[in-house]
Amino acid sequence: MPSLGRLHLITDTRPGRHPLAVLRAALGVAGSDLVVQVRVTDEATDREAYDLAGRVLALCAPYRATCLVNDRLHVALAIGAAGGHVGAHDLPVDAARRVLGPQAVLGATAREPVTARSAVAAGASYLGVGPCHHTSTKDGLPDPIGPTGVRAVVAAVDVPVIAIGGVTVARVPALRAAGAYGVAVVGELSAAADPARVTAELLRGLS
């Protein structure tokens, strides 16, 4: 299983966003320290997800950055990604682990200690924990848990906790102080005028 980078970039495929351009900029700064989670909208076809994930993997390969596919584990297998990430409405973690195999990176979503421990027991390699703050990048999310919620999950598990949801450069220090191993970002990079500069700032906050 590859070592897990602290900065996770989740692809933003909303209209007007340019996920591959943002990825190129981030890879140029973060290199192998970057984990890329390929996430597409529910409306995207499997073929569209496959095409995007394949292009992401090709960009990651020279840098030895980790490429994961969110939700659509068959796409992760089809492109040869390092693994995948499942949310609350996707396959159960134990089923996802059976699909991906014992060596793959498998992330799972959690927001409190009980579900976090269950996900780790079922085979999660790391946890995406949040939303930490309000965010507009995904609809229907529960109330933010803040650094206090992150700290509670960190105390309950022995796998890396990746804070997600409304993560900005300014909020990284508090999340790290709460015990987060790393952070996952969407809008902070996809909406940045200079994603390379923001990547460098995020990495400094995580170091």
Rank of each mutant, 00 (worst) to 15 (best):
Q103S: 15
R151P: 02
S136W: 06
H134D: 14
I162L: 10
V40C: 13
Y63P: 01
E188C: 14
L59W: 01
A156W: 04
V38W: 05
L77P: 00
V99H: 02
G179C: 12
V114D: 14
V22D: 11
H134N: 06
R64Y: 00
Q37E: 15
R98E: 12
T199N: 11
D51F: 03
I10M: 10
S3N: 13
T168V: 09
A25T: 08
G101E: 05
T41N: 11
L77D: 02
L59E: 15
S207R: 15
A122R: 06
A193Y: 03
A124L: 02
P113Y: 02
T45F: 01
L91G: 04
G80S: 03
P19R: 04
S136H: 12
P147W: 11
I164Q: 10
V75G: 01
S3L: 14
A156Y: 05
R111D: 13
L91T: 04
V22G: 12
E201W: 06
L91E: 13
G179Y: 12
T45S: 15
R171N: 07
A177Q: 14
A174C: 10
Q37A: 03
S136G: 01
A61H: 12
A21F: 02
A193C: 05
R24M: 00
E112V: 02
G83Y: 06
D139A: 15
L73T: 06
N70R: 04
V169I: 08
T115I: 10
A178L: 12
A121H: 05
P131T: 13
A53T: 05
P19F: 02
L34Q: 09
A163D: 12
V40K: 03
S207D: 14
V69W: 06
G166V: 08
T109E: 01
R204H: 15
A178C: 11
G146L: 11
A53C: 04
T11I: 06
R39A: 10
E188G: 07
A163S: 11
P147S: 14
V120F: 02
L20G: 12
P160S: 09
A61Q: 15
A82Y: 03
P19D: 01
V183T: 12
A110E: 00
A116C: 02
I79L: 04
A193G: 15
A82K: 03
A108H: 02
Q103N: 13
P195R: 08
A95N: 00
D42M: 07
Y126I: 00
V161E: 09
P160H: 08
R14Q: 02
P144D: 12
V120N: 06
L52F: 06
L23M: 04
E43Q: 13
Q37V: 13
P131A: 09
V185C: 12
R171K: 14
V105R: 13
A192P: 07
G205M: 06
L77K: 10
A88F: 05
I164D: 11
